[in-house]
């Protein structure tokens, strides 16, 4: 299978000497739904900027579906649809002008661009707004417009830089459904996000970037097997503040809410047996934090410690 994206030894040093990328290697296979995670300033947007040629790289090699960034730039650009983090369309143009013009930049004839604009604007629920200026759209509609714009030349690789930032839950879920659908239809997707739940739900593979280095590049499945401990929150009926659970770390966060740390292999049966034995009634239970979030924090911290010790 062809690699959709291959990055080798990518470095970016900005004017002033700040090294945003310190020689990263990354491979994304065709058809993948890949998440690139990292804290603010980790280098996610710089990486995407280099791939989409908005940022000039200092060193390294980037290929997209075999097309080299240095020698086959136009062909490489044709493979990519980019949904940037910030709204970057002309707010005075209409929705349809924005998508049709974008198709034109890729050499799509105007008639075909109009046909495709109908298809994608309908799919993304923007067809009724086609003749409205972009500034009149809501934040969620503007996000969807950027997705439609990125798809009009029918790219093989769609890159989304935090596409659901500031989007309400309902819209976020409909965007997830749409992205899952187009991924199934064959479009490779690379997504950066702050919502770790989003990465866990959508993506098959994941790269964690921190301080300009890739600290992990694996499948979500494998990553989650590294998780050794989870914290569960149990909502109990009133009147059981005196109970204790042997063999587990636990604490009360309020009169009726108990937090219990459970090792991966320990299972929850023992917890429930002890609670039942003491007459406690469990009303509901949930994970304290997103599992991936715990791993993410752990990995980023480890990466930093390693870097500090190597200096």
């Amino acid at each position: 299978m062809t690699n959709a994206l291959e990055i080798k030894g990518l470095r970016k040093v900005y004017k002033g000497g700040f090294e945003a990328l310190k020689g990263i290697d990354l491979t994304v296979q065709e058809g993948d739904f890949y998440a690139l995670l990292g804290p603010n300033g980790a280098g996610k947007s710089t990486t995407i900027g280099v791939i989409s040629s908005l940022v000039n790289k200092t060193e390294g090699k980037v290929t997209v579906f075999g097309y080299d960034l240095d020698t086959q730039l136009a062909d490489l650009k044709r493979q990519i649809g980019l949904v940037p983090q910030e709204f970057n369309f002309n707010q005075f143009e209409t929705v349809r002008q924005i998508v049709v013009n974008q198709a034109g930049y890729y050499g799509v004839p105007r008639k075909l661009a109009h046909q495709r604009s109908e298809k994608y604007l309908k799919q993304l629920g923007l067809w009724d707004k086609r003749d409205q200026p972009a500034r009149a759209l809501s934040g969620g509609m503007k996000r969807r417009l950027m997705i439609a714009r990125a798809l009009l030349h029918e790219p093989k690789l769609l890159i989304l830089d935090e596409p659901t930032a500031g989007v309400d839950i309902e819209l976020r879920r409909s965007m997830w459904d749409y992205l899952t659908q187009i991924n199934k239809e064959g479009i490779t997707i690379i997504l950066t996000t702050h919502y770790l739940e989003e990465a866990e739900m959508l993506c098959r593979n994941i790269g964690i970037i921190d301080a300009g280095r890739i600290v992990e590049n694996t499948s979500i499945k494998k990553l989650l097997t590294q998780l050794s401990r989870e914290t569960f929150i149990l909502d109990l009926a009133e009147g059981h503040k005196d109970i204790s659970i042997d063999g587990f770390d636990s604490r009360w966060s309020d009169d009726n809410t108990l937090e219990v740390d459970v090792e991966k292999d320990a299972g929850l049966n023992n917890v429930f047996e002890q609670l039942s034995g003491q007459g406690a009634k469990v009303l509901s239970m949930r994970n304290k934090a997103n599992r991936l979030e715990e791993l993410f924090v752990h990995m980023v911290e480890n990466g930093r410690k390693q870097e500090e010790s190597s200096q």
Binding site: L73, D75, K77, I80, L82, E86, N90, Q102, Y105, Y106
Partner: peptide
């Protein structure tokens, strides 16, 4: 300049327009 300021110049920069 407006295209630069609003960053919609990026629409052209990411595309294969020579």
């Amino acid at each position: 300049f407006s295209a630069k300021f609003q960053r919609n110049i990026e629409e052209m920069l990411v595309s294969p327009v020579p």
